[in-house]
Write a protein that binds this DNA or RNA. Structure first.
Length: 205
DNA sequence: CGGAAGATCCACT
DNA sequence: GTGGATCTTCCGA
């Protein structure tokens, strides 16, 4: 079984939408204090660089914060938002294009108790409580700006083959939380596994 | 240099 | 469904 074999850098250097859909079912592996935490990616969003008003690379803007977003595909882009949350992106395509895929939700595979401990919760955990949201996902895996710009094909945070899904079970819909983005807000760039209970929000249909 | 916004989450009604 | 928390980052003046 090659589920824990890291994906090669080449994987990330295809078109962003192609990579986004192909990331579903893959494993996001985090080595922390000698333990291996694993999430199966179940929901992502594609961000299409300079031409995408919802992207941090809109109109080609480069700042200190989004520097890694313009690197060659295969590295992480981690940013801090709302004064308290981190979001993890996978940079895609070629250097300079500013394309990336936001990892929005994961299904716990290993290290569930530890990941729950990283999260604040009162009631008994329900699906989606561990990593059903971009901020939650980073909390569960203890991902912060320290990973910004680091490669995802090896190291303490990496993406492995996991359990790829058929394109037939991939549901596309508009992205979340970007209502300000005009026409881009309607683009169907959110991808999720049909019927999965660990997504950040219910899927259409 | 100040103001405003933000790829979110949680608690409460 | 609504509102508050919380603070870095960015842009305009």
């Amino acid at each position: 079984m090659g589920r824990y074999r890291a994906l090669p850098t080449k994987f990330f250097r295809r078109s962003t939408q192609e990579v986004a859909a192909d990331l579903l079912g893959r494993f996001l592996v985090r080595d922390l204090d000698g333990e291996r935490l694993v999430l199966r990616i179940v929901e992502v969003e594609a961000y299409l660089g300079a031409r995408d008003r919802a992207s941090h690379a809109w109109q080609g803007r480069r700042t200190e914060r989004n520097r890694s977003l313009f690197e060659e595909g295969g590295v992480a882009y981690v940013y801090f938002i709302y004064g308290m949350h981190y979001c993890l992106n996978v940079v895609t395509g070629r250097s300079g294009n500013g394309d990336a895929v936001l990892l929005r939700a994961g299904e716990p595979i290993a290290g569930v108790e530890t990941m729950l401990g990283h999260r604040c919760w009162r009631r008994s955990p329900r699906p989606g409580d561990v990593a059903g949201g971009p901020g939650k996902l980073c909390q569960a895996l203890k991902v912060d700006r320290g990973f910004d710009g680091s490669p995802l094909s090896h190291g303490d945070l990496r993406i492995t083959e996991g359990e790829p899904v058929s394109p037939k079970v991939v549901i596309a819909s508009p992205r979340i939380g970007i209502g300000y983005a005009g026409e881009a807000a309607t683009w169907p760039l959110r991808f999720a596994i049909e019927g999965n209970r660990h997504v950040s929000r219910p899927l259409p249909g």
